[in-house]
Amino acid sequence: MGTYKLILNGKTLKGETTTEAVDAATAEKVFKQYANDNGVDGEWTYDDATKTFTVTE
């Protein structure tokens, strides 16, 4: 398990959240659902060194 971070750079929603997941693929699924639930759809990037996903609208 590891802690993964999501940085939201949406047009109307900005912020950060974290999740505990077994791997990056699992964290990505959780974060994409979170972003979708909050109406954020954009370009995704992932930094393996910091376990950080970023979505920018």
Rank of each mutant, 00 (worst) to 15 (best):
M1Q: 11
M1T: 14
M1C: 05
M1V: 11
G2M: 13
G2S: 12
T3W: 15
T3K: 13
Y4V: 01
Y4S: 00
Y4R: 00
Y4F: 10
Y4E: 00
Y4T: 00
K5E: 03
K5P: 00
K5H: 10
K5V: 13
K5R: 15
K5Y: 09
K5W: 08
L6R: 00
L6V: 05
L6C: 04
I7Q: 05
I7N: 05
I7D: 03
I7L: 08
I7G: 02
L8H: 04
L8I: 11
L8K: 01
N9G: 04
N9Y: 11
N9E: 10
G10C: 05
G10Y: 11
G10Q: 04
K11E: 12
K11F: 09
K11H: 13
K11L: 14
K11V: 13
K11D: 14
T12G: 12
T12D: 15
L13V: 13
L13D: 08
L13C: 05
L13K: 09
L13G: 13
L13Q: 06
K14C: 05
K14P: 06
K14N: 14
K14A: 12
K14G: 08
K14E: 08
K14D: 06
G15H: 14
G15D: 12
G15Q: 14
G15W: 15
G15N: 12
E16P: 03
E16G: 04
T17R: 10
T18V: 07
T18M: 10
T19A: 08
T19G: 03
E20C: 04
E20K: 09
E20N: 10
A21N: 03
A21P: 01
A21Q: 12
A21L: 03
V22D: 15
V22T: 11
D23G: 04
D23C: 04
D23Y: 03
A24K: 10
A24P: 13
A25L: 12
A25I: 13
A25V: 07
T26Y: 10
T26D: 09
A27L: 00
A27N: 00
A27I: 01
A27C: 02
E28D: 05
K29S: 12
K29L: 12
V30W: 14
F31H: 02
F31V: 02
F31S: 00
K32P: 00
Q33K: 09
Q33N: 15
Q33Y: 06
Y34K: 03
A35H: 01
N38A: 15
N38T: 12
G39E: 08
G39N: 11
G39V: 04
G39R: 08
V40C: 05
V40K: 02
V40T: 04
V40E: 03
D41G: 07
D41S: 10
D41R: 07
D41C: 05
G42A: 03
G42V: 02
G42T: 02
G42K: 01
G42D: 02
G42H: 02
E43A: 10
E43R: 12
W44D: 00
W44L: 03
W44G: 00
T45L: 10
T45H: 08
T45D: 11
T45N: 10
Y46C: 01
Y46F: 10
Y46H: 02
D47R: 04
D47V: 07
D48G: 09
D48I: 15
A49S: 10
A49H: 10
A49M: 14
A49C: 05
A49T: 10
A49R: 08
T50D: 05
T50L: 07
T50Y: 08
T50C: 04
K51C: 06
K51V: 03
K51I: 02
K51E: 04
T52H: 03
T52C: 06
T52I: 06
T52A: 04
F53K: 00
F53R: 00
F53T: 01
F53V: 01
F53E: 00
F53C: 01
F53A: 00
T54K: 07
V55I: 10
V55A: 03
V55M: 06
T56S: 11
T56K: 07
E57V: 06
E57N: 04
E57A: 05
E57L: 05
E57P: 03
